[in-house]
Write a protein that binds this DNA or RNA. Structure first.
Lengths: 106, 106
DNA sequence: CAGAATCCCCGAAGATACTG
DNA sequence: CAGTATCTTCGGGGATTCTG
C-alpha cells in the first residue's frame, strides 16, 4: 500500500495510485467491461508488454484497487477485477474521460 | 497544443495535459490562490527547481491551461494565471483532491 | 527576477528469453 | 496461460551555471 502520509496535497496521493502510464486504461477496462483474464487485458491494452502489464497489475493490487484471483488449473487462469475501493474511483475516472472527450470533440 | 487525435481513450488526452509530476500542484495553487509570480510559485511548489518549473509552466501554457503575462519592467515580473480553459478542470481537480483526502483520512 | 543553456541521472518502461 | 528473470533504453526530471 502506498504511503498515506507526507503528502502536502491529497491530490498527490491520488496521482500516485493512478499515475502509471497504463493504470488508468487498465482500471477503465475493468470498470467498463468487468472481470478480465491476464491475456484479455494484454490484448485490450494495446501495445503493453507482458512484463509491464504484470508490474502495473501488481501495483494496482498492492494499492488495493484491483483483486487478483488465481485458479489453480492447468493451464493456469488468473482473473482481475476491481475491488470496492477501486470502484470508488468511478466518478473520478468518468469525469476525466468526459473532460477529455469534450476537449477532443471541439 | 498536445495532439488531439490518436487517443483510443479520451482519458489519455486528459492525463497527457495534467500528468506531469508537478502540473497538478501548479494548477491547484493557481486555482485556489489565483495569480502568482514565478518566484512565488517556486516557493509554494516546494522542492521544484527553476528549470523544471519553467518547463512545466511552458507546457501548461502551450496546452492553453495557463496564461503567462510578462511585465517589461526592471527587474522583470511575470505572472501566471489560469485561462478559462484551465478553469474547466476545476471539478476534476477538486474531485481528485477530495478522493485523495477521503482515503488519507481513513 | 525570471529565466536560458548544459549536462547528467535514475527509474519507469520496453525487449527478449525462459518456465511452472 | 500467465507469468518470472534480465538486460537495455529513454526521457522526464534534476543540478548547476550563466544572463538580460
Amino acid at each position: 500500500m502506498a504511503l498515506k502520509n507526507n503528502y502536502r496535497y491529497p491530490v498527490e496521493y491520488t496521482l500516485q495510485l493512478i499515475g502509471g502510464k497504463w493504470k488508468l486504461l487498465i482500471l477503465f477496462i475493468l470498470m467498463e467491461e468487468g472481470t478480465k483474464r491476464f491475456g484479455e487485458l494484454r490484448k485490450l491494452v494495446n501495445g503493453i508488454t507482458q512484463g509491464v502489464l504484470t508490474t502495473q497489475l501488481r501495483e494496482l493490487e498492492k494499492d488495493g484497487l484491483i483483486h487478483r484471483e488465481v485458479f489453480p488449473t492447468v493451464p493456469p487462469k488468473v482473473e482481475y477485477s476491481l475491488t470496492s475501493f477501486g470502484q470508488t474511483l468511478y466518478p473520478l475516472l468518468k469525469g476525466m474521460c468526459n473532460w477529455g472527450r469534450e476537449q477532443l470533440d471541439k
